[in-house]
Design a protein around this nucleic acid. Structure first.
Lengths: 350, 350
DNA sequence: CTGAAAGCGCTTACAG
DNA sequence: CTGAAAGCGCTTACAG
């Protein structure tokens, strides 16, 4: 069933059928109704490709999740407490606005090619890029083609430094720095002075922000940053487990440990508990993200809530705006985090 | 940049460019290389819509998740331990085969329309439908249009009963019945005789299977099925919490409780613990799914592992096969579950 | 208000 | 081996 068939059945031309479909004003109600009736009767749907070819938008946005270093079990990306809710919310928000979403994950640099293709082949009106390791060159490429792009969790200074044409670009961030400050100051207020950290992947904007905030807050309060209390990490639980084990073997523990995300916090707790170190009696733990798990482990994890809902929704709204308005100025939005106090912290024993 | 531009630059016709792109055999290596060089130089990508219009496939499959009754917080669908890994694996498997995936969730009957459109507008080559409440009429519709469709978790007898043209249809299931039997017999072997159940949503194939298996296994072993030990549930944690509370108030507990999924099992444990009933000392709990949470709660949950990986991969492979082969016979695959014994069950106290 | 026609960017018989 | 031409199913100036 094509528009031509509808036209014949309704006794009009394809032009008129098209006008009805696209809600042109210059169609008399009578004609419109007549056409609409035929369309409904036959469950006609205009071929989306033909429409797109003829210049209409695709009503599809892309969602690309980058997860390059997450080695071995890389396919678990959506179970990752960070990606899952973003995918969730982006799909829902976009669907609610009448958009489909095309998803592709990026596990290797080669996958960037597929994403670029999605743009160049005009499969989508615009795209949202989320995840760490956003290659600045890739971003330049995309932006160069004038494709609307929204970046979630991206260091703005990098964009500025590249002097990109930022017309079709928008960045959505969370205020991780402030969230971390709040968490560290909460520990300090509880009476902690020896506060350690498990770092996130430092190639990541959030990884860096969370670490920097830790550092500067400690310094601001005149507290020492001890090398052996600064543990490396990459946001994955294995790294945290390993580092905490090392820490345990060193014999000396901090009274509190800030973990750059919940996955690592939970894993740290496990390592600690297994060695008879009790949380929060012997050591306080705070995480970051407020993942699903945080409220289910025991003790329930005190953590910094990431405004993933706000960010995801904002990303969709922004990309749709960029797609529709043809052009608009570079914009940035940054959403606040919130400390969620549960049961994994207490005043340190003397 | 269009194929015409490439043709000019390479000194050939569009036809030849197209032949190169589509890997036709009848192009001399020299010509092919010449064209390929120009294509690469200019980062040319053929417009996907034009290709699709001209008869090529879209290289896109649809993934539609139905989640109708999950009331209030329905947008959490991808965090749902059941959907998240499916989305994950379907996207990855499809991507690896060079397919994009178009996602849409179905929260209301109206959303079925959007999914139907995705097919009718030819946005996708075929689709995977997952989630409960698959409207048989909807399925009929789809199948009627000859659109390749894979159903995950669907009662085959319904399809048979409808006498559908099953040529472009495939069903992927898990052996929930056998998994439940294994779980219940494990409890019986531990010495339990008073085994209760929290049911899943009975409008669901898995909900029914899990209940029926419980019922028949109990009967087979001559054990009583007591009305007050058969709790209603809908796969969501709230229902389990509420039902267990009621059970607690009734004063009489079974020695073991089979929960139709992990979300409910975890919630049941919480309700129990909060009332001083210890798991597994006072009551044994077994779940179903082996969700991420299962190994992180305390005590770690004994549960039946759903073969989600196998199912998701099989679904993608099947849909791609259906899309490519034009036609193929109706097929069904059913993957085995596996009991994962952890710490939430033990021999009942006398 | 409405139709004929051109055009969107490809693919693929067809003819040579 | 290769080009000219028709066709895929729409949209949208253009002309009336």
């Amino acid at each position: 069933m094509r528009s031509e068939d509808i036209a014949k059945l309704a006794g009009v031309s394809r032009s008129t059928v098209s006008r009805v479909i696209n809600n042109y004003p210059n169609v008399p109600a009578a004609t419109r109704d007549k056409v609409l009736k035929v369309i409904e009767q036959h469950h006609y749907e205009p071929n989306s490709f033909a429409r797109a070819l003829a210049g209409k938008s695709t009503d599809t946005i892309g969602l690309f999740a980058i997860s390059m270093n997450e080695n071995a079990d890389a396919s678990r990306i959506y179970q990752n407490s960070y990606f899952a809710p973003i995918v969730d919310l982006v799909v829902d928000t976009a669907n609610a606005q009448g958009f489909y979403v095309l998803i592709h994950t990026i596990y290797s640099p080669g996958d960037f090619q597929k994403v670029k293709q999605a743009f160049l082949q005009k499969r989508i009106d615009g795209g949202i890029l989320v995840g760490t390791q956003k290659d600045i060159n890739f971003v330049s490429d995309m932006v160069g083609h004038g494709a609307p792009l929204v970046l979630i969790d991206y260091d703005i200074t990098e964009i500025i430094a590249e002097r990109l044409d930022k017309n079709h670009l928008s960045i959505i961030n969370s205020r991780d720095y402030e969230g971390t400050v709040e968490a560290i100051e909460y520990l300090i207020k509880l009476g902690h002075r020896e506060i350690g950290i498990i770092k996130g992947r430092m190639s990541t904007f959030s990884g860096r922000e969370r670490y920097l905030a830790y550092e500067s807050t400690m310094m601001k309060h005149g507290l020492p940053i001890l090398d052996n209390f600064v543990l490396a990490g990459d946001f994955l639980k294995e790294s945290a487990y390993r580092e905490v084990l090392n820490l345990l073997h060193s014999g000396k523990l901090p009274t509190a440990l800030f973990c750059s995300n919940d996955a690592m916090a939970v894993s740290a707790m496990e390592a600690l508990m297994e060695h008879g170190v009790h949380v929060p009696d012997d050591i306080s733990i705070v995480g970051f993200d407020d993942a699903l798990l945080a409220s289910h482990v025991s003790p329930k994890l005190t953590t910094v809530r990431l405004p993933i809902d706000d960010m995801s929704k904002a990303a969709v709204e922004k990309i749709i705006e960029l797609c529709q308005s043809g052009q608009s100025a570079f914009s940035t939005a940054s959403f606040p985090t919130r400390l969620v106090v549960r049961d994994s912290c207490k005043t340190p024993a003397i």
